[in-house]
Amino acid sequence: MSVDGSTELLPLRTWFGLRWRGYDRDEVDDYVAELEAELRLVIADRNASEARAEALASRLASIQEENAALQDGLHRICLTPIDPKGLPERLARMVALADEERREVLRDAQLKALMIVGEAEQRARRLDEEAAAEREEIREDFRLAMSARRAEAMRALAELRNAARDEADRIVAEAKVQTLRIE
């Protein structure tokens, strides 16, 4: 039971009879004695609940340990190979068949693993070849692009050279005209 401002723990009496010098002492003493008795009962209940909870927790821990031990035993038993000599003929045959099936499953798994590895290697080779071809294509594209840029740069340089020569020829011609005027 929760205790908060709206819920009372016990139905507490909140009034006492008035006497000449305050409250009736006997009434207050009786009330306090009743409260103490109620509190002792509540404390005893709480202590009993705590003891029961501890006992249950201890029992739970021992059951969990026992369960773990049983699981370990079961695991050990399942991993222990069965000796066919100790089994009746029918069970021995079933064990032999199960062992043969286990070997077949293992053999199939190994074959599948080899096939998968082979396929992965072929795929890796194919991807390597594709990557090499793509690298070569990129190199060729780069070489062509650089050749085109080089040709463009050479053309631009030739145009600049021609423009500079034309300008120089014009300046020389102007200088000659000027020198002729001056003379």
Rank of each mutant, 00 (worst) to 15 (best):
A57C: 03
Y23M: 06
A132S: 12
R93Y: 09
S2V: 12
G86H: 07
L91C: 09
A68H: 07
D4W: 03
R170E: 12
N162D: 15
E140Y: 04
P11Y: 06
A133I: 03
E130I: 02
A175R: 11
A53F: 07
R181E: 13
V117W: 02
M154S: 09
P84E: 14
S49M: 13
I138A: 15
L39T: 08
P84H: 08
Q122A: 15
S6L: 09
L35E: 03
L97S: 06
A120F: 01
R135S: 05
Q110W: 00
A98R: 12
P88H: 11
A153D: 13
G118R: 04
A156S: 12
P84Y: 10
N162Q: 14
V177D: 14
M1Q: 10
D29C: 00
D29R: 02
V28H: 00
I63R: 14
C78G: 13
A163K: 13
E100I: 02
A153C: 10
Y23Q: 04
S49R: 13
E66H: 06
R76P: 00
V95L: 12
D29H: 01
T80W: 04
F142P: 00
L18A: 12
D26C: 02
L157F: 12
E159C: 08
T80L: 11
M94E: 14
G118L: 03
I171W: 03
R21E: 13
D141I: 05
L35Y: 05
R135M: 06
R19K: 14
Q122M: 10
A148G: 06
A53P: 02
F16M: 01
M1S: 13
L18F: 03
S58M: 05
L12F: 10
S147V: 08
P88E: 13
E54N: 07
Y31N: 06
A131P: 00
G17R: 11
L9S: 06
R19F: 01
A156I: 09
D26W: 01
G118S: 13
G118T: 05
A163H: 09
R52N: 03
F16C: 01
